[in-house]
C-alpha cells in the first residue's frame, strides 16, 4: 500500500508551480554568492555598483573556493531550513487549504502512510534541489576560476553542504506536525521563521548545542567558531526532534478531529 500512497503523493505535484518556485529560489543563491565573489575580486569595477561594493569589501571575504563553499553551506543550512519549511508546509498544508484532507483521511489507507509518504516526497524534493544546485554552484565556481580548488577541498565542501542540508531535513517533521495541527500552510512557515530567530538567539547565549534550530548555525560557524563534528548532544537532539515530529504528525492525523 505504501507504494501506491507514495505514487499518488508524487502525482499530486503534477503541474504544481511549487517545485519550480523552490528550484528558482535555491538556484539564485549560488548566483548571488558568485556576484559577491566577483565584487570582492574586482573592486574597481565593483565600485561602480556603489553600496553593494562597499558591503562586499566590508565583509572581508576572499574570492576563493573555501569561502565559496562556506557560503554555500550557510545557504543550504539556514536557507534550507526555511525552504524545507515551505516544502513541508505545502505538502501537508495544501490538503487543508484545498480542503482535500477530508477526502484523504477517509480512504481505506492507514493515515500514517500519508505522513510517511509526504515526508518521503519532501526528502526526494529537497535532495533533488540540493543536487541540482550543488552542480550549478560548482559549475559557476569553475567558470569564475576561483583560486584554491582541489578534489579534497571539493569533497569536504560538498560534504558540509550535504550535512547542513540533511540536518535541515531532520527538522522538517516538526513543521509537518504544525501544518496538520494548524490545518494550513501559514502557521508552519511562521513557526519556522520564529525558530530560526530563536536559533540565532540561543546560539549566541551558548545553548547552540542543545537547541535544534541552533545546530546548523553552530555547524557553519554563524554563532561561534565552526565545529568539525557535531557534539553527541546535538546529534541526540536532532534525532529526538525528528522522531517527535514524525510521531506527532502521525498521531495528529490519526487521533485529532479533522473538522476542516
Amino acid at each position: 500500500m505504501f507504494g501506491q500512497v507514495l505514487a499518488t503523493e508524487f502525482m499530486k505535484l503534477h503541474r504544481s508551480k511549487a517545485p519550480w518556485a523552490t528550484l528558482a529560489v535555491l538556484a539564485m543563491m549560488p548566483l548571488g554568492i558568485a556576484l559577491f565573489m566577483w565584487i570582492v575580486r574586482e573592486p574597481g569595477r565593483a565600485a561602480q555598483l556603489g553600496l553593494l561594493g562597499t558591503k562586499a569589501n566590508l565583509a572581508g571575504l576572499e574570492a576563493a573556493w573555501p569561502e565559496y563553499f562556506y557560503m554555500l553551506t550557510v545557504i543550504f543550512g539556514i536557507g534550507g531550513m526555511l525552504l524545507l519549511a515551505f516544502i513541508v508546509a505545502y505538502l501537508f498544508g495544501r490538503e487543508y487549504s484545498d480542503a482535500t484532507a477530508k477526502n484523504m483521511l477517509a480512504l481505506p489507507v492507514g493515515r500514517h502512510w500519508f505522513a510517511v509518504a509526504k515526508l518521503f516526497v519532501a526528502a526526494a524534493w529537497w535532495m533533488t534541489l540540493v543536487i541540482i544546485v550543488i552542480v550549478e554552484a560548482v559549475a559557476i565556481g569553475l567558470a569564475m576560476e576561483l583560486p584554491g580548488f582541489s578534489a579534497g577541498l571539493a569533497a569536504t565542501g560538498i560534504g558540509h553542504v550535504l550535512l547542513a542540508a540533511g540536518i535541515s531535513f531532520l527538522l522538517a517533521p516538526v513543521v509537518a506536525w504544525i501544518a496538520v495541527w494548524s490545518r494550513g500552510e501559514v502557521a508552519p512557515i511562521a513557526f519556522s521563521l520564529v525558530m530560526l530567530a530563536l536559533g540565532n538567539l540561543f546560539g549566541k547565549t551558548g545553548w547552540a548545542e542543545w537547541f535544534p534550530y541552533s545546530i546548523v548555525p553552530l555547524l557553519v560557524g554563524m554563532v561561534a567558531d565552526p565545529v568539525d563534528t557535531l557534539p553527541a548532544g546535538s546529534c541526540a537532539v536532532l534525532a529526538g526532534t525528528f522522531a517527535v515530529g514524525v510521531a506527532g504528525t502521525i498521531l495528529q492525523l490519526r487521533f485529532a478531529d479533522n473538522a476542516q
Binding site: 499530486k12 484545498d98 477517509a106 489507507v109
Partner: peptide, 29 residues
C-alpha cells in the same frame, strides 16, 4: 472505508490535476 463512498460538505479536489488524474488517485488508493 473500501466499502464506503462519500462526499462531505463541499466538493473538493486537487485543482492542478485533471479530472482523470484526480480519479486515478482515488483508484490507486
Amino acid at each position: 472505508f473500501s466499502r464506503i463512498g462519500f462526499l462531505v460538505e463541499t466538493a473538493t479536489s486537487y485543482p492542478n490535476l485533471t479530472v482523470r488524474e484526480n480519479l486515478e488517485i482515488q483508484r490507486r488508493l
